[in-house]
Amino acid sequence: MKFTIRVNGVEHTREVEPRLLLSDFLRHEIGLTGTHVGCEHGVCGACTILWDGAPVRSCLAFAVQAEGHEIRTVEGLAPGPGQLNPLQQAFRDAHGLQCGYCTPGILMTMTAFLEENPKPDEAQVREALSGNLCRCTGYQHIVDAVLLASQA
């Protein structure tokens, strides 16, 4: 079926099957491969995107359901090519990533989190991070990065 979706402020019209997951649509239909796919059953958080501003699992929604909603992916964070936004810069400065597989999902989760809690404490950051798995960092540097961004 034909449908239109808005991603990072840009409209895309495509003909897709209803069973196409939003995560696969973003990656394969419009080439936004920054959204990663880990588990495809809602556990790992790698595929987290913002749906009308709220972080959700893109592997647990069908692309056609997103019509009429505002979708934001990691590609929508940087102010321009070759640039990083303050949260991304903090991840770089605090070594908040190693392989980077989990990072786009964590950035999207934390973007929404910091909008609501601009000055969080460490416990709040850890709680907010609980829905995103990282196999590399042991989380400490991610927590550091988010706290660093909140001080900027």
Binding site: W51, P55, V56, R57, T109
Partner: peptide, 9 residues
């Protein structure tokens, strides 16, 4: 119940 990302939907 699960995580905020799940509870948002």
């Amino acid at each position: 119940v699960a995580h905020p990302q799940i509870r948002n939907r």
